[in-house]
């Protein structure tokens, strides 16, 4: 039984991480954290560096969770998340969602939206806590 967290290095990713970890503790399930990028720009701010991936892993393990990290360059981030979920037979996917205007949605698409629509397992969509941004 595994929970998949779609993680990006911003407040939405951190919210997903926090909620996902809480769910895993509650349900006594394993965690897979997916941090992927299309790699089509010189710098992708939502793509964590190796040190951060190690740090997150260590942090989650101190909570007594069994964690594995997926840190990849992929053709499509949403597809990558769904693919991992299917591989590990996930019971839940956790994504952070942010508000987008209708135009923004039409033009840019949204990883979270596509995960929510295309995933075969339940998806937990979370928002960052407006007051605290700690993890």
């Amino acid at each position: 039984m595994t929970i998949v967290i779609a993680y990006g290095t911003d407040q939405y990713g951190r919210a997903a991480l926090a909620h996902g970890a809480a769910q895993a503790e509650l349900r006594r399930e394993d965690l897979v954290v997916v941090n992927a990028t299309r790699g089509d720009s010189l710098v992708d701010r939502r793509y964590a560096d190796d040190a951060e991936i190690e740090r997150i892993k260590a942090e989650l393990q101190t909570l007594g969770l069994s964690v594995s990290m997926r840190h990849d360059v992929v053709p499509d981030v949403a597809d990558a998340v769904i693919e991992v979920a299917e591989q590990v037979d996930a019971t839940l996917i956790v994504v952070g969602v942010k508000h987008r205007s209708p135009v923004g949605k039409a033009l840019l698409g949204s990883v979270a939206q596509r995960v929510i629509l295309d995933a075969e397992c339940p998806v937990l969509a979370v928002k960052p806590d407006p007051l605290a941004d700690t993890v």
Binding site: G39, D40, S41, L42, V43, D44, Y47, D49, V73
Partner: peptide, 8 residues
């Protein structure tokens, strides 16, 4: 084309 982001 490079396909891996660099650490900024």
């Amino acid at each position: 084309l490079r396909s891996k982001p660099l650490d900024v």
